[in-house]
Amino acid sequence: MKGKGASLAETTQSFLVENPIFEIRQLSVWYKAQQVLKDVTMDIPEKQVTAIIGPSGCGKSTFLRSLNRMNDLIPGMRAEGQVFFRGLNIYARSVDPVEVRRRIGMVFQVPNPFPKSIFENVAFGLRINGFNGDLKAKVQWALERAALWDEVKHCLHKSAFELSGGQQQRLCIARALAVEPEVLLMDEPCSALDPIATAKIEDLIHELKREVTIVIVTHNMQQAARISDYTAFMFLGEVLEFAPTGLLFTKPKDPKTEAYLAGRFG
């Protein structure tokens, strides 16, 4: 296969992914002169939850944002290497980042609904994608999938800012789901939420993985252990270890992973 140079055998990935949706090959990202991501090579399995853990500042978010080319929006960010999404390099010249983002949705660290009504928040993605079916039904469908419908069905035209933090985050998930993405990237989606709201989101992730691939960045190891099928440990811009979650948490190969899991730094 031309262009997909690095062999997985030489990388930190200790297992073979049967059904990868992302094949990341030697991905390096610079912010101005600083290299934030160093030669990341890994496969991400389809319809599974993959967690990225690591100490803060290790490049987790940058890595996640390079999977749907959100980094393009930050002046001074530059990427090298390839990210194959269903076999197509999304960093190829002919690829439009807008098209990429339509298929790969994202949920951010702090709930960020638009300053519009709940309905309009969910409908926005549909509208810009030229959706011409039953808008109301589709919005309801998305809100149901985000387990928010019952809470907001009577106040769809209320401002999204009036919802609680947890509800806002589920609204953001509904907003992302409405356009039926194949992948949902979640950047520490619970870090701004209380434990109850966090539990709801985690349940939701369990539900959703049957239909979409989820890549989640978290600084919370317990959360990664609870919800993910695979876990990657990142350190200083590198993926040091990538393994099925159970394996990584019980038998880490890399001494740094072990030290991190034991809470010796973080």
């Binding site: 994202m106 810009i128 953001c172």
Partner: peptide, 15 residues
């Protein structure tokens, strides 16, 4: 973040 949220849903710069 408003721009990012919109872009993450596949909005073009003009949108």
């Amino acid at each position: 973040w408003v721009r990012e949220a919109a872009a993450s849903l596949g909005a073009t710069p003009w949108q």
